[in-house]
């Protein structure tokens, strides 16, 4: 059954990338390249874990549902605040998006490490809450022991955001903003509003990936050290899935398989050393580059990033 466990674990780790890439995709659809995703995931998860730490300090006296909801809300709020900061810098002040994003990552990762270090001093209690993110009826023999509610929430959110992007007026307007803000502006769409809201919602969703990774998938107090890497993989997944949330459901699974393949090879009877196993973890980046090459060669506009990605919009520039 090792293969089954491997696949379930791949699905679970993939959900981290799914949240991150979904958030990034929504932001990029508004024309904003947000390289702050790793920082946003770090800060969001730090906020969630800080709340969990308080709630679970004395053996989790609060109702489990409330624990989960409060943790999710704190994570969403942390991510949204980071998104708001990014929007203010990149939309209102029209700062360079790459620089702003990288600064957000540097700032976010640092801030999160500070918060987690503080939690370690106070005593780590958030790891106790992992069980509340699983289904209560899933016992140790059920395959559901590996995949909790956030896995299903992630997939559901990806489907919903796909439908919103492709089938609704809001989605049409958002895509227009990312493709050609001047056209959207001329059509009476509030470009700034769309950019702000998409970035904030996207950042909040991405933050959930961080919380999922630390509390659910890893459930360990060292997990926060690797959230940043998850963030970068999420950004790569956006490119891999050619800016389509429903493709990223599949893409996140592929990334998950490739990411944990190295650590499972010994179980499959293949002897690999530590270095090789870590090298295998870079495979998601390799397949992303392959996808980039293929889509660049085929050069279909549908598979390209939103046309105004990375370009600040200023009405008077026309």
């Amino acid at each position: 059954m090792i293969v089954f466990e491997f696949l379930l674990n791949a699905l679970a780790i993939g959900i981290t990338f799914l949240y991150g890439s979904m958030g990034e995709t929504i932001t990029e659809k508004a024309g904003h390249l947000n390289l702050g995703i790793p920082g946003i995931m770090s800060v969001g998860s730090a906020c969630g874990c800080a709340v969990l730490n308080v709630l679970c300090r004395d053996g989790c006296p609060v109702h489990p549902v409330l624990i989960v909801i409060l943790a999710l809300l704190a994570t969403l709020a942390g991510g949204a605040l980071m998104g708001l900061l990014y929007s203010f810098l990149a939309v209102s002040l029209r700062s360079n998006q790459n620089v702003t994003g990288l600064a957000m990552t540097i700032f976010g990762v640092g801030l999160a490490k500070f918060i987690f270090a503080k939690l370690e001093v106070d005593g780590v209690f958030y790891t106790r809450s992992t069980k509340y993110f699983r289904f209560p009826f899933a016992n140790t023999t059920s395959s559901l022991q590996y995949i909790g509610i956030l896995v299903f929430l992630g997939i559901a959110l990806a489907i919903v955001s796909s439908v919103v992007l492709s089938r609704t007026r809001v989605g049409l307007h958002l895509r227009a903003v990312g493709e050609s803000p001047a056209t959207a502006d001329a059509a009476g769409i509030n470009v700034t509003k769309y950019k702000y809201i998409a970035t904030i919602i996207g950042s909040a969703i991405a933050a959930l990936g961080g919380l999922f990774y630390i509390v659910d998938f890893q459930g360990s107090q060292e997990a926060y050290l690797t959230v940043e890497a998850m963030g970068w993989l999420s950004v790569a997944l956006v490119i891999f899935s050619t800016w389509r949330p429903y493709v990223s459901i599949f893409g996140s699974f592929v990334f998950g398989v490739l990411y944990i393949l190295g650590s499972y090879l010994p179980s499959f009877g293949l002897k690999v050393d530590m270095a090789t196993s870590n090298l295998i973890k870079t495979l998601p980046y390799v397949v992303t580059i392959i996808v980039l090459i293929i889509t660049s060669i085929r050069n279909r506009p549908e598979n390209q990033p939103p046309a105004s990605l990375g370009v600040s919009y200023f009405r008077e520039d026309r």
């Binding site: 049409l172 895509r175 227009a176 493709e179 050609s180 056209t183 959207a184």
Partner: peptide, 14 residues
């Protein structure tokens, strides 16, 4: 016009 959109999507935009 938004190049990536269909004619109808461009027409209904906004």
């Amino acid at each position: 016009l938004v190049d990536l959109f269909s004619a109808a999507e461009n027409v209904v935009l906004g």
